Amino acid sequence: MLLEGKNAIVYGGGGAMAGAVARAFAREGATVHLVGRTLAKLEQVAADIEAAGGHASVAVVDAYDADAVNDHLASIEGRVDLTFNGVSVREKQNIPVVELAVDDFVRPVEDAARTNFATATAVARRMIEQGGGGAILMLSSSAARESGIEMGGFSLACAAIECFTRTLAGEVGKHGIRVLALRPNFTPESHPDWVNTEDGSLDHLTVGTALGRLPRLAEVAGAAVFAVSDTAGAMTGSVLNLSCGAVID
């Protein structure tokens, strides 16, 4: 297994994307510490992991609050080897940017910067104290590189995450710590309650992709496992393009 014996923290662990990543980490042998604000959702993911023979703990923590993040991190025994931040941001989309209020445009940028800075720097400090090594993984999206689809401030938020990935990687690499980000396109499985994949409503997202489809949660989770594993040990400061070719690097 690729993550045998590793300790992982997954922020936003009760969500669809982070939950899928957490389950994949556990399947590959990691002990997963699930962090989020909704206990019931965290407990469901933990139950799935335990039922599959894995190991998980849950903690209700606001990942926008640096003090709360630090306090939780201090409570974890042993090494911290891996972390993934899948915390959602507050954003308004499907409105022309010229019609957006300033607060609505700026809010997702502030949210993304705050939670990723709070979690990634806290974990990086812990990894340095441990003697170095480890992998920090963030979540962007194809919005960081797309245009013309009324993403509002979400596009800038994702671009900020990718910029921070490169910045932090350049600073902590000397400690053997790798920093990466995932850039999936929209994943319909993350929103089963309001997305109908059969009625053509997602055609505007798929028509411009090289593969003619959108990414699956399992593909995103599998890429996350690869990114934090020793198999990808030479990768840092990189963004893994999982957009099905909506963006061509």
Rank of each mutant, 00 (worst) to 15 (best):
G176I: 00
S147M: 15
V69D: 01
S201M: 06
N70T: 11
A143Y: 11
G36F: 04
G212V: 04
A159Q: 11
G15A: 08
H191P: 08
D203F: 08
P192H: 05
V102E: 15
D199H: 07
K41R: 15
I95D: 01
D104F: 09
A169C: 03
S243Y: 06
F154W: 11
E4I: 14
L211F: 09
E198G: 13
V87Q: 01
T115K: 02
A63G: 13
R216F: 12
N70I: 15
G5A: 09
A143T: 14
G176K: 02
R107K: 13
P192Q: 08
A26E: 02
V98K: 12
E219D: 11
I76Y: 09
G19E: 00
D199K: 09
T197I: 14
A234V: 15
A56P: 00
N241M: 05
R216V: 06
H33N: 08
G245K: 09
D230R: 08
A26C: 00
M127Y: 00
F186H: 06
R166T: 08
N116H: 09
A47I: 05
A218I: 14
V225R: 02
V58H: 00
G133R: 04
V32G: 00
P215A: 03
A227D: 05
Q44W: 10
T236S: 13
V98Q: 14
E146Y: 02
T167F: 13
S140K: 08
G78Q: 01
G133V: 04
L211Q: 12
